[in-house]
């Protein structure tokens, strides 16, 4: 940390000032001039919360993508389809059993199993043939999209969270002060907060797994040194399958989350594939912290964009991507 500050004093200062302003904007009661400038604090806080929680969702999708890429150099352009498949499967599980929580393990296991099939029948056969892998996964996503359209039709599906999660929760963030002097606190959907917390836990868990366990060391060694992989022989194949299953399963879980946050429909697969691509390009391919940072940036950009300049919200995220590519092609946290 000290090293970073010493090396980039200017940017550290900028980041520090921005962070300070942000903290003030979050906790202070806004003076009138600020309200006149950018509108009510409630809108701002909502955009912030939506952005952060959307970032959590993006992280769930993109981390699997980046993990698989980092270890195996496999670009799985069917990742968005895994997301949507997980969502539909979770929807069915939740409908049939009436248990929202059950949707997660079911989606995880089924999509992970599908991922294992993919790894086995596609990626292992085309070891090192990047382009063919990419093309095949594009083909798979075309086929899957149509199969899912066939099965579930073009309707929107929503996975409804259980009673105890569905209400709003009163947070301790002040939005405004009433004339009477009472403080008004922000209300925010509990389910989104819970899910966000869960994705933070998943992220930290992944980080710990990668950095503090033997398996993680093996995986990281594989990421750093491709030649070592062949040297370690058969065991690594098992790790490959495991990582692929985990990454795919995570996409499936993200599908359930997405179905709860938003809705499931044809086309969402492409949307989340794109989101993952942009997130990992911005954050840096193969890096879990990069995926977290990228997901946060993209989530915030999308939400703030749609609140403050609605016409160009989507374009904003791509502009961020272009800027990163232009000045740091390996991504914010990527290694060159």
């Amino acid at each position: 940390m000290r090293g970073v500050i010493d090396r980039h004093p200017f940017w550290s200062a900028v980041i520090f000032v921005v962070a300070a302003v942000l903290v003030w904007m979050i906790f202070a009661v806004w003076p009138d001039w600020l309200k006149d400038l950018i509108g009510r604090k409630k809108v701002f806080l909502n955009a912030l919360f939506n952005g952060v929680t959307l970032g959590g969702l993006y992280f769930l999708v993109a981390s699997g993508f980046t993990l698989i890429f980092g270890l195996m150099r496999n670009v799985n352009l069917a990742h968005g389809s895994l997301y949507l498949l997980g969502g539909y499967v979770g929807y069915v599980a939740a409908e049939v059993t009436g248990l929202w929580l059950l949707a997660f393990p079911v989606a995880f296991i089924l999509v992970a199993a599908f991922g294992i099939l993919l790894q086995f029948f596609v990626f292992r056969r085309m070891e090192g043939q990047d382009l063919r892998q990419t093309l095949v996964t594009i083909g798979i996503s075309i086929v899957m999209a149509d199969l899912m359209l066939w099965i579930w039709g073009g309707d929107f599906y929503n996975i409804t969270p259980p009673e105890w999660l569905s209400g709003p929760m009163t947070t301790f963030f002040v939005t405004t002060v009433k004339r009477s002097g009472d403080l008004v606190f922000l209300k925010y959907p509990l389910v989104r907060i819970v899910i966000f917390a869960a994705s933070v836990v998943v992220g930290i868990g992944m980080w710990l797994l990668l950095n503090r366990t033997r398996i993680g060391m093996l995986i990281r060694a594989g990421v750093d040194d491709r030649d070592m992989l062949s040297a370690t022989g058969a065991r690594i194949q098992l790790v490959f399958v495991g990582v692929f299953a985990f990454g795919a399963g995570l996409a499936g879980v993200a599908g359930v989350v997405g179905g709860t946050f938003q809705s499931l429909a044809p086309g969402e697969d492409v949307r989340f594939l794109l989101a993952s691509l942009v997130v990992v390009i911005v954050g840096g391919m193969g890096s879990i912290p990069g995926a977290a940072l990228g997901a946060l940036i993209i989530g915030l950009a999308e939400q703030f964009g749609s609140v403050y300049f609605p016409t160009y919200a989507v374009v904003l995220t791509f502009l961020i991507m272009v800027a990163v590519l232009a000045f740091r092609p390996q991504g914010l946290m990527g290694r060159s």
């Binding site: 382009l131 794109l274 691509l277 942009v278 791509f318 590519l325």
Partner: peptide
């Protein structure tokens, strides 16, 4: 290589 596909898709 593969980055090209992703970037052009984006």
């Amino acid at each position: 290589g593969i980055y090209t596909i992703m970037i052009t898709l984006a």
